[in-house]
Design a protein around this nucleic acid. Structure first.
Length: 616
DNA sequence: ATAGGGTTAG
């Protein structure tokens, strides 16, 4: 019976199999089982089917049949076997194929290099490339495109440059796949100018190369540049796809540009794209970082499938908004109802969510769970940092200090900094002094550390020490990132710096700040001069405080929006204590809801009360 | 037969 089918129309099962027809595949497997000659066509079709369906056992049967019948796969087939084993996560078997096939060429080598790259084995990919190169096989554009994706990490840039010069010598620099990979390599190494140069030199562009350069800017936090380039390329006719949207949404999250984010979302809706998880994840993040959590949740709830990143993005959202209860609720749901397992980012979000949301004990429970290994995730340095934060916020400063001493990590500046912050809020001079000096040793260039330590001394009336700290700061600290605040009005971002005069309505804004300060003083506002570490008289200090960028942005928001409309200000650094007080009073006296996003979290201020509980 | 860009955290 079987042989009848096979002998009469040998090609029919093959063509059926290649269309994914069950009968065809069964028939081919049957042919193999009864020992009929398969040769190239049959094996090839079967293997492709197994690759498409990720059918590991069936593919293994096909391979076993080749071995049994002493069939030596020619190059094309050998390469398919490499791809097959790679797709089934069997890198060792894939490599054995490369070593065993009688002949290798650039395609089979490249398939294996690609296998290593895709699975994250960068050094294996590079070594194999070298082996291939030394054996005299000329790499082609496929080889270079895939190889460059393995040039990451510390020595990635050096290797990438060497490969780049090889690419130039072989004249592949203008190849669009090679070029995109090349510019992405530079961007990921932080060399955005070199990335841009490669991009600008490409003789043609497509959506991938455009997306690569846009996301290059976005990933480095150069959000305005990413946005500007996105707009320019769109004007020039780029047809975005879901990856492009996800990348530009990252930039808009950074800028907290809600109107622009909505516009991109509308584009996405009008395009009627299928629900790409990656795109929906970035929409969740965009809405949450723009302060619109209910939109995030709506998208999250509507998703047909979710990845761990979807859950994390949502948890981070609640966390940054200080909604501890929601964090705990969603985390429970994740553990109970989702097939997605929490990862180390999940725990960072949950721990910092408990801390920001005033649920310290719950957070500590989660941490102890981690320590016991109940979740299969080892606590890392950042998780320990969250615990220091948790204890500090709860006023358990001594405990936090002991906790740091017991860690089997060398405490970082961030961890000491978190404890110092706790010492300031809870006025613990003894530990604060120790921690402060420790911190100044590790991170003498960070001006913020001096400010907190000096605040601490000031709160204890130790003015001599305040002066010492100030002198130390002037001697050693460098201002790395100038403070900057902005506000979005009708899709335009208005940015203010502490001491520039670039905004067209700067005079008007300064006048408004002065007016505000007078009004607020009547209501009890006392400028917190301890926030200024320059050695100037009090009047000057007050002037400096009133020049802080977040006050300018806030004042501008009050001028430019209608009464009663909430004001949304974004700051690139942590908000200072004085500006926080200022904003609280504004919300009370002017009956304006103020939403202030700083480097770490949201401050939702209503009627003089901030969602951060004055700890941040 | 082999190829490039993407989402959370820091």
């Amino acid at each position: 019976m079987e042989s009848f089918v096979v002998l009469r129309v040998k090609n029919i099962p093959i063509s059926l199999a290649s269309r994914g027809n069950r009968f065809g595949i069964e028939a081919l497997l049957e042919m193999a089982a009864i020992g009929l000659e398969m040769k190239f066509d049959g094996y090839y079709t079967l293997l492709n089917e197994c690759i498409n369906r990720r059918a590991f056992r069936e593919g293994q049967r096909v391979h076993a049949h080749m071995i049994k019948t002493c069939y030596l796969p020619p190059m094309h087939l050998g390469t398919r076997l490499i791809v097959f084993y790679n797709n089934c996560d069997r890198l060792g078997d894939a490599r054995r194929m490369l070593d065993e096939i009688p002949e290798r060429n650039v395609v089979s080598w490249t398939a294996m290099v690609s296998a290593y790259s895709k699975r994250g084995y960068a050094s294996e990919a590079l070594n194999l490339f070298l082996q291939m190169f030394r054996s005299g096989t000329e790499p082609n554009e496929f080889t270079f495109a895939t190889l460059l994706t393995s040039c990451t990490g510390t020595s990635g840039l050096d290797l990438g440059r060497q490969i780049h010069s090889l690419i130039i010598r072989r004249n592949f620099e203008s190849h669009i796949f090679v070029g995109s990979s090349l510019l992405d390599m530079y961007a990921k190494a932080g060399r955005i100018y070199e990335a841009r140069r490669v991009f600008d030199c490409l003789p043609e562009r497509d959506v991938v190369s455009c997306t690569a350069i846009i996301s290059g800017y976005a990933q480095l936090g150069l959000d305005e540049e990413a946005l500007e380039l996105f707009r320019q390329l769109q004007r020039e006719g780029m047809i975005s796809n879901y990856v492009t949207y996800a990348s530009v949404l990252t930039a808009l999250s950074g800028l907290a540009a809600l109107d622009l984010g909505r516009q991109v979302h509308n584009h996405v809706l009008r395009r009627e794209l299928p629900s790409y998880v990656v795109l929906l994840n970035s929409l969740i993040d965009m809405y949450s970082k723009c302060g619109n959590l209910s939109y995030s949740r709506r998208i999250f709830d509507s998703m047909p499938e979710r990845t761990v990143i979807s859950w994390n993005a949502m948890l981070v959202g609640y966390s940054k908004h200080g909604m501890g209860k929601e964090v705990v609720k969603l985390f429970k749901l994740m553990k109970e109802e989702s097939k997605v397992r929490p990862d180390s980012v999940t725990f960072l979000a949950v721990l910092s969510g408990c801390s920001h949301g005033g649920m310290e004990d719950r957070g500590l429970e989660y941490f102890y769970e981690m320590e016991k290994g109940e979740n299969g995730i080892e606590p890392e340095l950042e998780h320990y940092g969250c615990v220091v934060d948790l204890l500090g916020r709860a006023g358990r400063v001594e405990e936090a200090f002991e906790f740091i001493k017991k860690m089997h990590f060398e405490p970082t500046a961030a961890i000491w900094g978190s404890l110092l912050g706790a010492c300031r809020v809870h006025s613990n001079i003894d530990i604060g002094e120790f921690v402060g000096f420790r911190l100044l040793q590790i991170e003498p260039e960070n001006a913020g550390n001096y400010v907190i330590l000096s605040n601490l001394y000031a709160s204890a009336g130790r003015w001599e020490d305040v002066r010492t700290v100030r002198e130390l700061m002037l001697e050693k600290a460098v201002i790395k990132e100038p403070g900057r605040s902005w506000i979005e009005l009708d899709q335009i971002l208005h940015t203010f710096h502490a001491s520039d005069r670039s905004h067209p309505r700067r005079e008007e804004v300064s006048a408004k700040v002065k007016e505000l300060s007078i009004k607020l003083k009547e209501a009890g506002y006392v400028p917190d001069l301890g926030c200024v570490l320059y050695d100037v008289d009090e009047e000057q200090k007050e002037k400096i405080l009133l020049g802080h960028s977040e006050k300018l942005a806030l004042a501008f928001g009050l001028i430019a929006t209608a009464e009663g409309v909430p004001v949304r200000v974004i700051k690139n650094l942590r908000i200072c204590v004085d500006c926080h007080n200022f904003a609280k009073l504004i919300s009370e006296i002017y009956r304006r809801e103020v939403s202030l996003r700083d480097k770490n979290r949201f401050h939702h201020i209503v009627g003089g009360i901030c969602s951060c509980g004055d700890y941040w």
